[in-house]
Design a protein around this nucleic acid. Sequence first.
DNA 1: CACATGACTGGAT
DNA 2: AATCCAGCCATGT
Length: 108
Amino acid sequence: MEKASFFQDVYDVVKLIPEGRVTSYGAIAKYLGTTSSARMVGWALNTSYSENIPAHRVVNRIGLLTGKKYFGHPDRMKELLEREGIKVKNDQVQDLEKIFWDPTKELF
DNA sequence: CACATGACTGGAT
DNA sequence: AATCCAGCCATGT
């Protein structure tokens, strides 16, 4: 995958996240080469509100649904995740280590 | 143009 | 082990 633009790359990577899996902003940032710019990943997703991006599969490093408030409805993110078989409790993904998808390892 | 803020993270306290 | 602090960089005021 070429480096068109930071935002575009974020979109592409997020689209590649397998169903029932999640990843972290930092993992995406690292894959893009801007390891310490995890914040921009979230910013990019915020800008992609109209894109076909499964942003609900992107959580912070501890599996917390930090961006659920930006899904229109606070429970939308949780609902979408559970719909894919991901267990979410108290806005936090359960069994994170089992469903975590690291682009630098799985994709490359 | 300068300052504040944010869907984060890692190291220091 | 839990909490705090500073770095990261695009966007908005």
